[in-house]
C-alpha cells in the first residue's frame, strides 16, 4: 500500500458515494447513465468473486463489499426506486458493443486461462470502457449537472492515481501487471477530454455544457 494506491481507492469511494448521495438527496437520477452503472456493477461482481476463495486483508474485503454494495444500490435507485426520473431516451448506448468484444478479448489476452482469472481480466477491460455510456449521454444532451461532473472527476482521478501507484510498485517492488496497466492507461485517457472541461469550466463556477 502506497499513498497513490490509498488516495486512488479513496477517490474511487468518493465518486461512488457522491453519485449515491446525489440520486438520494435529489430523489432523481436525471443525467445519469443507468447503463454505465450496470457495467460497474458487473465489473465489481466479476472482479471480486475472489472474496469467496481468498482472504487478502481486512481493508481489501471491506472495500470490495462497499464497492459492490454501492454499485447495486445505485442500479436499484436508477431502475427501481427513481425509475420515473431515469432518462432512458438519452441513455441509448448499446451495451453489447462493449460487453461482447471485451469478453472476447478477456478470453484471448489473459494471465491464465482459468475461470476466475478470465472473469478478473474481463472486469479490468470492461472497467476501462464502462464510463462510455455516461460520456455518450452527456455528449447527446450537451450538458451535465455540476454534481455529476464531480462524480466523473473523482472516478477518473482514481484510475490516474492508480497509474502512479503502478509506477511506484514497479520501482520499489518490481511488481507490474501489464493487463491492468494497459487497461488503466486506456481508462485514464478516456477521461482526459472531460478533465479539460472540468478544469476550464466547472472549477471556474460554470456549468458543464458542450458547444452545440
Amino acid at each position: 500500500m502506497n499513498i497513490f494506491r490509498l488516495t486512488g481507492d479513496l477517490s474511487h469511494l468518493a465518486a461512488i458515494i457522491i453519485l449515491l448521495l446525489k440520486i438520494w438527496k435529489t430523489r432523481s437520477c436525471a443525467g445519469i447513465s443507468g447503463k454505465s452503472q450496470i457495467l460497474f456493477a458487473l465489473v465489481f461482481t466479476t472482479r471480486y468473486l475472489d472474496l469467496l476463495t481468498s482472504f487478502i486483508s481486512f481493508y481489501n474485503t471491506i472495500m470490495k463489499l462497499i464497492y459492490i454494495g454501492c454499485a447495486y444500490a445505485t442500479v436499484y435507485l436508477i431502475y427501481m426506486k427513481f425509475k420515473a426520473t431515469y432518462d432512458g431516451n438519452h441513455d441509448s448506448f448499446r451495451l453489447e458493443f462493449l460487453v461482447v468484444p471485451v469478453g472476447g478479448l478477456a478470453c484471448l489476452v489473459n494471465h491464465d486461462f482459468s475461470f476466475l482469472e478470465i472473469l478478473w481480466t474481463f472486469s479490468i477491460y470492461l472497467e476501462s470502457v464502462a464510463i462510455l455510456p455516461q460520456l455518450f449521454m452527456i455528449s447527446k444532451t450537451g450538458e451535465a449537472e455540476t454534481i455529476t461532473t464531480h462524480y466523473l472527476f473523482f472516478l477518473g482521478l482514481y484510475r490516474a492515481l492508480y497509474l502512479f501507484n503502478w509506477i511506484w510498485r514497479f520501482y520499489f517492488e518490481g511488481f507490474f501487471d501489464m493487463i491492468a496497466i494497459v487497461a488503466g492507461v486506456v481508462q485514464t485517457i478516456l477521461y482526459c477530454d472531460f478533465f479539460y472541461l472540468y478544469v476550464t469550466k466547472v472549477l471556474k463556477g460554470k456549468k458543464l455544457s458542450l458547444p452545440a
Binding site: I56, H111, L116, Y162, D177, A180
Partner: peptide
C-alpha cells in the same frame, strides 16, 4: 511471478 496470485488491488 504470476500476477493472478496477487490480487491485492481493488
Amino acid at each position: 511471478d504470476n500476477p493472478s496470485q496477487e490480487k491485492d488491488e481493488l
